[in-house]
Simulated scan of single mutants.
Amino acid sequence: MTSAESTFLTVAGPSQLQQGRETLTDPGPGRVFVDITYTGVCGTDVHGYTDGSMLPPAVFGHEWTGTVSAIGTGVTTVAVGQRVVGGVGPACGHCAQCVAGHARQCDTVFAEANGVDPEAPAHGAFSTRVDVSQRRVIPVPDEVTDIEAALVEPTAVTFHAVRRTAAEHGAVVVVQGAGPIGLLTAQHARNAGAGHLIVSEPSAARREVATGLGFADVVAPRDLRTRLGVVSNGLGADVFYECAGVASLLQPSAEFVRRGGTLALLGFPLTESTVSYGDWQQRELRVVSSLAYNHEDFVGAIRSIASGRVDVTPLHTGTFALDDLATILDELDSGKSNHAKVLIDPRR
């Protein structure tokens, strides 16, 4: 019999956390226990914390890596002692989307990604241990460090977005926002064959990180229009990745795109946006939205990190204990933090 006490944190109300304890004794059929090594703090976690009620419990603390400590009957994909990351399973093959031939839009995977499937864990991984379905764990190769593994989930989010956008090789690409999502998107876009890539970011510190990742054309937003005009001979971007998630930037972002070009939406604003429908229609904009990921995106993200084609380590700016979580969430919500990606280590 496997038995251990786990400590976890959940959202108890607007900007309030609650500590819980549970004793986990033997995983059920098809389930595994994972001892958490690191959990990344995502913008979604910050929004869920400040709102107090918007997130399903499994989503608060969804960027995690750890080691399998016990497996239930019927588990075939992982073994005890194996390092894993939290993810989603392959397309189920029997939901309405799969039966209709749309496996990339599998209803089961979509529910898993949003923490609302029947097998969703009772809480996220701001915890010492989680009890999850084997569908949610993906093995980590030896070439990937624990820090890198903790950043697989946002790498999968951005891998998914760039894969959906399917830009042509040689495209003039703009990435708006050089936070973790923007910097990962830029690396995937570069790997996907961008001909000229411009990163736009108001923070000098983040522009410096982008330059350190090998991006030669990094500008402040005030200089973007002039620089893009020079690069594109006045046409505009072939592809514009909006990664800031600021509602007021939606229409201005579209106006940077050339006629017939693509506006790709990754940022997730929490307020309504106003756009010029006529402008978008007259210029035949192609708009590609993106949310979460598929199992294949995790596989591709892990391979990209393992091969060195995506460098996630410069995004990691701090590691804190579980008891520090509320302080970190408050700091990130303030808009004054210098952190990019913060990790929580529940072993501290």
Rank of each mutant, 00 (worst) to 15 (best):
A12N: 05
E63S: 02
T226G: 13
S304D: 02
G115F: 13
F256M: 12
A113E: 13
D107Q: 08
F298P: 00
E242Y: 05
T23P: 01
I198K: 00
F60H: 12
E153P: 02
G267M: 10
A186C: 09
P314A: 14
V219S: 05
V231K: 11
E242K: 07
D217F: 00
G66D: 05
A194P: 00
G335V: 15
Q16M: 14
A120V: 03
T108Y: 09
T158G: 01
D297I: 09
G267T: 07
F110I: 09
A4C: 04
C106S: 07
C95P: 02
A166I: 03
G170H: 01
V199R: 06
R31A: 01
D238K: 14
E255H: 03
H339C: 12
E284L: 14
Y49P: 00
V299A: 15
G236M: 05
N114S: 14
C98D: 13
S334I: 07
D279R: 08
L184S: 01
F60T: 07
G13F: 14
Q281W: 05
R207V: 06
E201P: 13
V75Y: 03
R309S: 10
A321Q: 02
G74W: 07
D324L: 07
V84Y: 03
E143W: 00
T67G: 04
I36Y: 08
A306H: 00
G300M: 04
I198H: 01
G89L: 13
T108S: 08
P314Q: 11
D45M: 13
D345P: 00
T165W: 13
T319S: 14
C95D: 05
E331Y: 09
D45L: 15
V32A: 08
E143S: 15
T67L: 04
T317A: 09
R347Q: 14
V218E: 08
V246I: 15
A58H: 09
F268Y: 12
I328F: 02
D345W: 11
E22I: 14
A120Q: 11
L285C: 05
L263A: 09
Q134I: 01
G40M: 02
G74L: 10
T165M: 12
Y241D: 08
S232M: 11
G214I: 12
Q19C: 04
A306K: 10
V34D: 06
W280Y: 11
I302Q: 03
T23M: 03
T271N: 10
T274S: 13
A192I: 01
A254K: 07
C92G: 08
